[in-house]
């Protein structure tokens, strides 16, 4: 049975996430206001500009309902800007969801010309390395109790984390052809 997965559609590459979900047994639902969250089994917060998405999230009173979704045990996954928005602390004042007990550093690699692609091993993802695209990417500087590190760069930098059914990745699986992370998220949402 097809499962409804929300994609926060305030700004950013929500259509790319929707296309990935469409390849799986999942129905993407664009979320712009709280009522769009009704009946979804999980939520993806896409890449984009975290300040833009955060301000619009506040403007449309989406923060509380998204936090309630997490409390209800629904899986939530943030990619890049989405990871930033799920963090507790990003070292500056901007609207956040405070869902993951992590400290994030924005634009940690530098400017656009420092953006890159590489292959990663990710805990729980079998079948070989995962090709990861980092664009003006954030990194996780510190994790609190209960937050599990799923992937690091060679130098030890944390780029994927999990706490229960909450996930954050610094990179953009939606920009590659590899649907393994999306498939794993959809399966978790189906059984949540």
């Amino acid at each position: 049975m097809s499962v409804r997965i929300g994609v926060l559609a305030l700004q950013g590459d929500f259509a790319e996430h929707g296309a990935m979900l469409g390849r799986l047994d999942a129905e993407p639902v664009e979320v712009r206001q709280p009522s769009d969250l009704d009946g979804i089994a999980g939520l993806i917060i896409p890449g984009g500009e975290s300040t833009t998405i955060g301000k619009l999230m506040e403007r449309y009173a989406l923060r509380g309902p998204i936090q309630a979704l997490a409390e209800a045990g629904k899986p939530i996954w943030g990619t890049c800007a989405g990871l930033i928005l799920m963090a507790r602390d990003v070292g500056r004042c901007q609207p956040l969801l405070n869902l993951l007990d992590i400290t994030v550093e924005r634009n940690a690699f530098g400017r656009q010309t420092d953006s890159f692609e590489t292959d990663l091993e990710i805990e729980g993802i079998n079948g070989g390395p995962f090709h990861a695209v980092f664009i003006r990417a954030p990194i996780v500087r510190a994790v609190g109790p209960g937050v599990r590190v799923l992937s690091r760069l060679d130098d030890g930098t944390i780029v994927a984390v999990r706490h229960g059914r909450l996930f954050g990745t610094s990179f953009h699986p939606e920009l590659t052809g590899d649907a393994r992370l999306h498939a794993s998220f959809v399966e978790m949402a189906r059984h949540a």
Binding site: C80, E117, T118, I135
Partner: peptide, 21 residues
């Protein structure tokens, strides 16, 4: 849990990707 890939910068994917964001 370590990455084993070479790092490529300034690829078409990365250049077009920022516009997608």
């Amino acid at each position: 849990m370590s990455s084993n890939g070479a790092v490529s910068k300034n690829t078409e994917t990365v250049k077009r990707g920022l516009a997608q964001m």
